[in-house]
């Protein structure tokens, strides 16, 4: 059997006994030790929003700061323009925001085409590289975040962490989602002559609405 053959080939070349290696690996995994975390991933909460905005801007993502969640629909309309077809994810939909005050067209989650923009929540953010984490789940098709022309993410500032390790600790509290994606800027490619072009397969633009309260 291939499994036994591969493991036998590996074992025949390793020092020590199988049991000792097993124990070493189990102990190493169980410790979940943090390695070097850069200073920039460990800044105080007050400094993080500005850091997040700066890092995301470097990779062509944009941000806007809002005082409260109810400002989201107006901010979406301001960004996209009237009449844009938006698809709002279940997390944001459940907040019962005043969408009726805008002239945006709502498209349900079901189709995979026919919308301009996805408006979604997120798991958390990491200021170190202007990164947001989104995940799959019930009512949360991860693929949808990649099928719009643009992606607007709602990030409460309380969920903006310093580094990636903080996001891992958060998702490990429950069952891991099938698919967790760190998003750091819009989709891009440098495959033709090393020049960056945006909108390769995913969204051409990424806009993060940071909610202060």
């Amino acid at each position: 059997m291939s499994r036994e053959r591969v493991l036998t080939d590996i074992r025949s070349r390793l020092a020590g006994d199988t049991k000792a290696r097993h124990d070493a690996a189990v102990a190493r995994i169980g410790a979940r030790r943090r390695n070097t975390v850069p200073e920039r991933a460990s800044r105080a909460a007050e400094a993080r929003v500005a850091q997040f905005e700066e890092m995301l801007a470097r990779v062509k993502g944009t941000t806007a700061r809002l005082a409260r969640l109810s400002d989201v629909p107006a901010a979406v309309q301001q960004y996209l323009g009237e009449g844009a077809r938006v698809c709002v994810d279940a997390e944001i939909d459940a907040l019962a925001l005043p969408w009726q005050d805008t002239r945006l067209t709502h498209v349900p989650w079901a189709p995979k085409t026919g919308f301009d923009c996805i408006v979604s929540g997120c798991v958390a953010g990491a200021a170190e590289t202007g990164t947001i984490a989104i995940s799959s789940g019930i009512d949360a098709p991860l693929s949808r975040a990649f099928l719009g022309e643009s992606h607007i993410v709602v990030l409460p500032s309380a969920r903006l962490f310093g580094g990636y390790e903080d996001i891992f600790d958060l998702v490990r509290q429950g069952d891991l989602p099938r698919h967790l994606t760190f998003v750091s800027g819009p989709s891009c490619t440098g495959d033709i002559e090393m020049i960056m072009e945006y909108g390769a397969h995913g969204p051409r633009a990424l806009h993060v609405l940071i909610i202060d309260s």
């Binding site: 099938r178 760190f182 998003v183």
Partner: peptide, 15 residues
């Protein structure tokens, strides 16, 4: 690049 645009962590099939 400080980080690639997308870094995905995939754990098993759909739940």
């Amino acid at each position: 690049m400080e980080i690639s645009q997308y870094t995905s962590f995939i754990t098993g099939p759909a739940r």
